[in-house]
Write a protein that binds this DNA or RNA. Structure first.
Lengths: 342, 342
DNA sequence: ATCAATCGTCGAAGCGCTTCGACGAAGCGC
DNA sequence: GCGCTTCGTCGAAGCGCTTCGACGATTGAT
């Protein structure tokens, strides 16, 4: 593996000139640059990333802290990670994976001190998150995928739950639905102050109330069985219900079964709109679900771009960047059946 | 950020002694070691990863080359990546992501020359794969997740398709089924010599023939619509069919619809066994599918462990490490209905 | 007591790069 | 023609660590 010294000798210039030719930190005459380029090509020279990092104190590496992850279908995570890695590469950065949960702030601090990363991307952020403090005191640039309760001074990229629930309700109301339920994540996630659960609930309620409609929402464990029960409970609370917004993929499969078991046809008798979904899940139902697909790829791209800006000394986003889920019309939503009697 | 020099001064020893105390490369007296440890703790010292890597010529970083990935539900990929990252960390390695497709062998060579990684994990290997050659000539240790056509001298970790299809057929035959279909991946993947498609097909056929049964298998695009058609074709080919093995998640959802539309109840009239599935997909059907879950986490762990061994100068696996998918009984397989009339 | 073989420690030479100060050679105004 | 700036290049000093050879101080065998 050729070193810069080899290139310098071959091009009859000094080591530092090669470095300047490469980085452009100082001007180099065209003829010299040509000789150097030639020498590099002939030797197949690639600058050593570690030496470069050590000397410049910039590793050109970003770290992605990602959760232990025993979640069910996490196509969204894959999309996110793939997109983040691709974007990092486009900006000349490596992306390293740090598998740390919310309780491992201390270990994160350790890794940060190793100087391997110029910046950190933190995903699955809790409303209250020790890792954020750890990163803060470590003094390393970082951006959050998600939001803590207080985002002051932080750079965040997150799903726009307000807009997503608003759009979801708007879609159903436009179709004539008035009695709409919301099937949320589990009570456990609510208790743990899992942001999507809280924000989804709030967004749905506001979207309904804004229209003078009564919101009905239930928490539901991530399983088809729980989904059936939750759907049953929603119908018990409001028998005139004709549509449901779900934000719980696995439970949705149970919910549709409950509906069909009651003789309610989807979408003729009842509309189902699944929000914040992984790619492809809509297609797994019959009829295929109308979904609002979680913007995993966008989050990855924007998160990395914000971080790169930050690492380069740029400004942190003053406000969180919020991305809404995109509505994808499937076959599970349709105009409300009967004129509403309420 | 404290350096080794700081620690040395504080402990009243030389820089090299600190290094030896840390690495154990040479003996250090207990009392000296104690002083050094103390100094490290007081200063919160963490060795700089880049400097360590530069000096020792080992970055303690592994690279994971992973596909562009526009696949549908890739929970398995997530499992794999998470498990690989966790295992790498347990062994004191970082894991960096290199998003490269099969056609980017040249760029891989470039990155390898940068000296950032001690070893490479290559996933979604094609039977014929330029990247393997690139890695080979680069002289960097690597292990494959999957297998090329010729695995001589290579270290591989892969799904055991023979065993998986054998177990799948055995499960169904034990239940009394005799006319069994196989719903494979797409013709495109077959043409591209995508290994799972080829090996799955072959394994299924052999498992059937071994029992004196006639194998019926179809290629099928990854969509529910194609799944319906493929299921219809299988039934047309063999009307007495009472069970199907599927290796195409999205298509499976269509296949079950086709069966139910024909009045065939699952599992009373017809058994469906979905193999090489992502985590959680079984639960998405009603009834929940009996599946053979792809061992994503095991592949990640074993792949990294093999690579760590290789990087440490250990022997490459002489034979590929093959892992079978684990049968998870759901509600979509049951004893064959009527005594077989064939 | 004597000599060789440890043992524990130190100093120094890198690893391959970035970056700072310096310094001839041009180029400029006057 | 004089000093002055600008341009292109060089040498050297690190970045924070590993590792090699060396060297007193013990230790054990004789």
């Amino acid at each position: 593996m050729a070193t810069m010294q080899d290139v310098a000798r071959r091009a009859n210039v000094s080591l530092s000139t090669v470095s300047y030719a490469l980085s452009g930190a100082r001007p180099v005459s065209a003829s010299t640059k040509a000789r150097i380029d030639e020498a590099m090509r002939e030797l197949g020279f690639r600058p050593n990333a570690l030496a470069q990092g050590l000397a410049s104190r910039r590793s050109r590496t970003l770290a992605l802290i990602f959760p232990a992850m025993d979640v069910g279908i996490s196509g969204t995570v894959t999309e996110f990670v793939a997109s983040a890695a691709r974007t990092a590469k486009e900006h000349g950065y490596h992306l390293v994976l740090w598998p740390f949960g919310a309780d491992q702030a201390e270990e994160i601090r350790d890794l940060v001190h190793q100087g391997m990363a110029d910046g950190v991307l933190l995903m699955e952020v809790r409303l209250q998150d020790d890792r954020v403090d750890a990163l803060h005191t470590a003094g390393l640039p970082f951006t959050l995928i998600g939001r803590t309760a207080d985002v002051d001074g932080l750079t965040c990229v997150d799903i726009d739950f307000d807009r997503t629930t608003e759009d979801a309700v708007a879609h159903l109301v436009d179709l004539g639905h008035r009695h709409i339920g919301f099937l949320n994540h589990s009570a456990a996630s609510h208790a743990a102050r899992y942001a999507p659960t809280l924000r989804g609930q709030q967004g749905f309620r506001e979207a309904m109330v804004r229209r003078g409609l009564e919101p009905h929402d239930v928490l539901c464990h991530e399983s088809p069985g729980a989904g059936r029960e939750a759907m049953a409970e929603l119908l018990a609370r409001e028998p005139r219900m004709t549509a449901v917004v779900t934000m719980n993929e696995i439970a949705t499969f149970g919910a549709t079964v409950e509906l069909q078991d009651r003789g309610l046809r989807i979408p003729e008798d009842f509309s189902v709109l699944s929000i914040v979904t992984s790619p492809g899940v809509g297609a797994m139902s019959n009829p295929p679900l109308t979904t609002m697909h979680a913007p995993g790829a966008e989050l990855g791209r924007l998160g990395v771009e914000a971080l790169v800006r930050l690492v380069g000394g740029g400004p942190g986003g003053p406000a969180p960047v919020l991305i809404s889920c995109r509505l994808e019309i499937g076959g599970s939503t349709a105009p409300a059946r009967s004129p509403d009697r309420s």
